[in-house]
Design a protein around this nucleic acid. Structure first.
Lengths: 219, 219
DNA sequence: CCATCCTGATTGAACGACCGCTCATATTCG
DNA sequence: CGAATATGAGCGGTCGTTCAATCAGGATGG
């Protein structure tokens, strides 16, 4: 939780508070103007502190980006489990989680896009931290889906692929919002995708035809 | 094809040639270092021309980015139709197109990521040009899928949603390559996704259960 | 209870480096 | 020779980062 980001200030509460200010301001600015167009001065101004002070709580401008991205991913990991904790049945849990995931992405649409835009601007090791955090979140979904599989409600598909299909379905709502927003509500978007995902698109004729065109599934 | 990017040079062939050099160099540099970390000097150096000359063929650094992104999208639009032109049967055409699309994305993986990273760095109107071009490419796939629908090989799903599912499946191969590369080959990835897409994931039990959990599909 | 001191937090001016873009000049070629 | 094309030094501006100076507030001692 307290990240491997160094600070010269000892007082933990103060560090928490100041970083909170910095991250809140930086998220807003990065999301609208991008990482490179945002200056430390901008961040300091919006956070209500001086430029110099930021460097007591962070070593780099890149560190600010790391803190922002970690905060976004933490948001996912925090809000997801709450959505299905009351539900006993695995399939119900999975569906609640998927719908919740889409809602979380929708609420943080700009921040989600920011993650795609700027994770690559991080140095190798900082990027690895972010990717690991993403995997942890996806693991939550992956586990739920595995349980559906053992329950016999979904067939023996590759869970990794399935998980990423769902994750990308949610992310795409943010990434392609410029297209979807005038055509679907979030709920319509999600339910159409679930319908596709669960039933598939082929008719009986189609399924027969596909048998002649498919390639073997190896792993 | 010749874009709404201004040049002070008259000779059309020369413009084509110089822009080719510039775009090739810039694509390489943008893809590895990002738009903002790449300098005009870098581009000029790799293209084998002087900094000043770039501004005879382009008004802005942003213009270079626009040319690069248009080139990537043109690549899609050019290579896709070739993949299915010999095939008569709509379903076969659609499948050939999907597989080809994934291969094109794979070949231009870094450039595809670049598009996601930096389209937002463009000014409003230049971004609109890019988004339009993307829609045109997707339209190729959309048409193929509509034909499958009238052929009765796929059921009456929303073609917009289906198209974007497939597009994002291909893009995800690039976006999440850091995850997939150690787990699947491109072909495995695609075939698993097609299997999911075509047959759906639910078992018969699952389908019955889903009836109680689904929400109505409006549009 | 106040004056003094000290430590850690905070400020913002300034440094140094960088970079997009221009323009006076050079080169090329018909 | 002259028009079109090409060069690259340099201008003007920006921005990340540092650091000497200031401030706050608690401890100390009279």
């Amino acid at each position: 939780m307290t990240y491997q980001v160094k600070s010269t200030v000892e007082d933990t509460d103060l560090v928490e508070k100041r970083r909170g200010q910095i991250v809140t301001a930086a998220t807003k600015l990065f999301a609208t103007n991008g990482f490179f167009r945002t200056t430390i001065k901008d961040i300091a101004g919006l956070a209500g502190i001086s430029q110099g002070l930021i460097y007591q709580y962070v070593t780099d401008k890149e560190d600010v980006l790391l803190l922002v991205l970690l905060d976004v991913l933490d948001g996912y990991a925090r809000e997801l489990p709450a959505a299905f904790e009351g539900i006993a049945d695995p399939f119900g849990r999975a569906i609640a989680a998927i719908r919740a995931y889409a809602r979380v992405v929708d609420r943080r649409r700009k921040a989600t896009i920011l993650a795609y835009r700027s994770t690559q601007s991080l140095s190798e090791n900082r990027r690895a931290i972010i990717q690991n955090r993403e995997l942890e979140t996806n693991q939550i979904l992956g586990t739920l889906l595995s349980e559906c599989l053992t329950e016999g409600v979904i067939r023996a598909v590759n869970v990794d692929i399935l998980t990423y299909q769902i994750v990308m379905m949610a992310h795409s709502w943010a990434l392609k919002h410029w297209y979807f927003k005038s055509r679907f509500t979030l709920e319509q978007y999600v339910e159409h995708n679930l319908d596709l995902l669960f039933h598939g698109v082929l008719t009986e004729t189609g399924k027969a035809r596909w048998e002649g065109l498919r390639k073997p599934l190896l792993p």
